[in-house]
Design a protein around this nucleic acid. Structure first.
Lengths: 340, 340
DNA sequence: TTGTACGCGTTATCAA
DNA sequence: TTGATAACGCGTACAA
């Protein structure tokens, strides 16, 4: 592997000149420049960004920590981060925390050791030491899929409470009275928790009494959604509509409901959350709350890079969400729900 | 940011000793070791993996280039790569080529400049200069979702020809005679091309004449699948079954077919390829060819790391595939297909 | 416009 | 078991 020293010797110039040709070609005479280019080609010179990072204290690399790349929503946001990174000559190292704080902790450590210039993370624990030491040490980072509107750090997120409210309100407006919720485990993510709060508030405001039997917590998986809805449908007085705290769970729930013999959406309305790309391709097409995952990723990257460039006041960016009504939710039937 | 020099001074030892405490604690006396640990804690020392990489010529980082993280199959394989990396203290830098060779070319360049120790890539162009120079320069890499059984490099893949054959054979066995195919653009990926060959061979072997009208090429997207199936269904003599070259396209195709008023699977059978996680959650549940994406990713990482450790003969690992019959494929109806 | 020389944080070599 | 020091490839003052 040849270095700028080899190039310099071959071209009969100094290493400084070679460096200049690489970093600010205009600052060197054309003739010299050409000589250097020629020499670089001759010895198949490959630039060593690591060595540069070593001296400039910049690796031009950021870390992205998400729960799991398997959830299409995180794939979307990841794409947003990456594209913004690509456009700005920044590499992205990806890490999956699997909603586990210990994993998150370890990833942050490893990535910082790798000298990433900053971090974008979807945290599992807002109150944990991870965030605290990041803040204390003024290490650049941005929270993605954040639930906080204030605080000493930048963040990109949505109003999950409002999302939960909107979803529930939609079901209420369709005449549903028994509305269940399949939620991601509150211990794993406060997004789910906030959505549940929105759900509860909406019920209260509409004089529908909250029944804690109608809440099931589960892990964020297809099978989790399927199993959870079966629990709900097995209740003595089952729900006629269910709000799922993400589309992925909703997909599982639809499957599970159908397996118990229900006809959707007539016998059970379902609303999801995220509006992942395949939501409109489901059967029935999923009514859901849209959050702009790709744009959120992009925006997080943008905030992070500017923060790396120049530390400034934290910015919390709460993006717009919207109810997207499709086929999976429908007016409650007059006849009572199928009973055992 | 404190360095080992700070730690050394604080502990009253040399930098060499600090380095030893970090890399082989057993080689230093317990008493000294404790002193060093104490000093590290005192000045909040953070290890600089970049500096180490600089001297050891190892970044403990690999690059992973895939077409797009949006396709769940690539998300699965990415997870496999990552988990193997995690377990071996290797970071993964992700890059999306969007099936574009120029992107791929650029990513390889950038990643090599970043001094990744090796590359895992799903190439768009087997014959291109990218692979050639990688080989020439003996840079460690492994092809993922590879179509080749021989050659001077390691690769992990499946027999796409056989997959296409199996899928088609299944449809033939159900009595279908007019079998269409929605294929990913041959110019973007030879996987699709090989699957098409399998499809064609199977038709021939079953004395079904090949009709080139029944092939539509498209980009690998949901809407691509939807639009393509509509083209096929608009034919004077439309197919009664369609083989889609991946599940993602199949999902789009199902939607498209339904939009034209068809009842699935009775009026149209569909077979996909990949067996992505949501395949069994579709309606109708998708018949498909299973390829073990996660394991393929893991295996590719394994091959790469061993190759980095010690260059050896290339290994081509062709994984098993299997037809998974679900609901989206059914026996051809006796009555003729709906006509205009 | 170009060259010299030093420093970045770590590991590795060799000597003690 | 420990220490002194060169080396890694590049950027950057500073000098010429």
């Amino acid at each position: 592997m040849s270095t700028i020293l080899d190039v310099a010797r071959l071209a009969g110039v100094s290493t400084a000149t070679v460096s200049r040709v690489i970093n600010s070609p205009d600052s060197v005479r054309e003739e010299t420049r050409e000589k250097v280019y020629l020499a670089m080609a001759k010895c198949n010179y490959k630039y060593n960004a690591l060595a540069r990072g070593f001296v400039t204290k910049r690796s031009n690399t950021i870390g992205l920590i998400i729960p799991t790349i398997n959830n299409p929503v995180f794939a979307d946001s990841t794409l947003g981060v990456q594209e913004y990174g690509d456009a700005n000559n920044i590499r992205v190292i990806l890490g999956n925390s699997y909603y586990k704080y210990s994993q998150e902790e370890n990833l942050v450590k490893v990535l910082r050791e790798s000298q990433v210039d900053g971090l974008i993370l979807t945290t599992t624990n807002l109150k944990g030491d991870v965030l605290k030491s990041l803040i204390d040490e003024k290490f650049p980072f941005v929270l993605l899929f954040s639930t906080v509107k204030g605080g000493p750090f930048s963040a990109v997120g949505i109003d999950n409470y409002r999302g939960g409210y909107l979803a529930t309100e939609h079901l209420v407006s369709l005449g549903h009275k028994r509305i269940g919720m399949v939620a991601g485990n509150f211990s794993m993510t406060d997004r789910s928790y906030h959505r549940w709060h929105g759900y509860k508030s909406c019920l209260r405001n509409n004089k529908i009494s909250y029944d804690k039997e109608l809440l099931v917590q589960t892990d964020y998986s297809l099978s989790g959604g399927r199993d959870s809805i079966k629990k709900l449908l097995g209740l003595p007085s089952p729900p006629t509509a269910v709000f799922c705290s993400n589309d992925y769970i909703a997909l599982g729930a639809i499957k599970g409901a159908r397996e118990t013999g229900l006809i959707l959406p007539e016998e059970l309305s379902i609303v999801g959350f995220d509006d992942m790309q395949t939501a409109s391709y489901m059967v029935p097409a999923l009514t859901t709350i849209r959050q702009p995952a790709y744009e959120m990723g992009r925006r997080a990257a943008e905030l992070l890079l500017s923060q790396i460039e120049q530390p400034s006041k934290p910015i919390q960016d709460m993006m717009d969400i919207a109810l997207v009504v499709r086929e999976s939710s429908t007016a409650v039937r007059e006849t009572t729900h199928k009973e055992e």
